[in-house]
């Protein structure tokens, strides 16, 4: 029984299917948790949509912005002044290996995307997000090679933003 239940993540591309299968009852590209269970002769396959687990903790301004059709940015909408040491905020914008998520996922404005992406790099270099690293990386900053093992900090005003991006916002 247990070996039949698999947790897999599948992506059903709209265009990867023949023309006959262009109608779906659920969003086509939603992440699903597929459960396969067998009872005597009947095999049941269920696709459950996976929730991110963040719905309860979201700040209310996100929903407000979504309702008004505005873009939500921590600096523009909340007035937050994020530093590279705010790892609890920066870790929300990265993948499990510590890589910054693209703008179509984060939903930030161009300026914020660039700024937060740089601050994620700073936090990694300062060894503050050691738990979010690829498997082959040294997670403890003190075990890194050469000058990298020593503590360092950064100034956020050294983040250089292109003039075009500054003008937009």
């Amino acid at each position: 029984m247990n070996n039949l239940i698999k947790n897999i993540v599948c992506r059903q591309s709209f265009w990867g299917y023949p023309a006959a299968r262009t109608l779906f009852t659920t969003p086509a590209t939603r992440v699903k948790h597929i459960e396969i269970s067998q009872e005597k002769d009947v095999v049941t396959v269920r696709g459950k949509t996976v929730e991110s687990g963040r719905e309860q903790l979201l700040v209310p301004q996100i929903k407000e912005c979504a309702r008004n059709g505005e873009r939500f940015c921590p600096e523009c909408s909340l007035g937050l002044d994020i530093k590279h040491t705010d790892v609890l905020i920066l870790s929300q914008y990265v993948r499990s290996d510590g890589c910054m998520l693209p703008r179509r996922v984060t939903g930030l404005c161009k300026r914020q995307q660039k700024k937060i992406g740089t601050m994620v790099t700073m936090a990694h270099k300062a060894g503050l997000m050691g738990s979010l690293k690829p498997a082959n990386c040294k997670k403890d900053p003190e075990k890194r090679y050469g000058f990298k093992k020593f503590n360092k900090y950064f100034f956020e005003d050294t983040i250089k933003l292109p003039r075009a991006i500054c003008k937009q916002s």
Binding site: N7, V9, E55, L57, V59, L80, L88, Q92, T106
Partner: peptide, 20 residues
Amino acid sequence: VIDNFPKIMDYPEDYLPKAI
């Protein structure tokens, strides 16, 4: 503390995490 910290980003509906 990490889990209960207020979130300012939620994944879009078509977000696909790294394949398990």
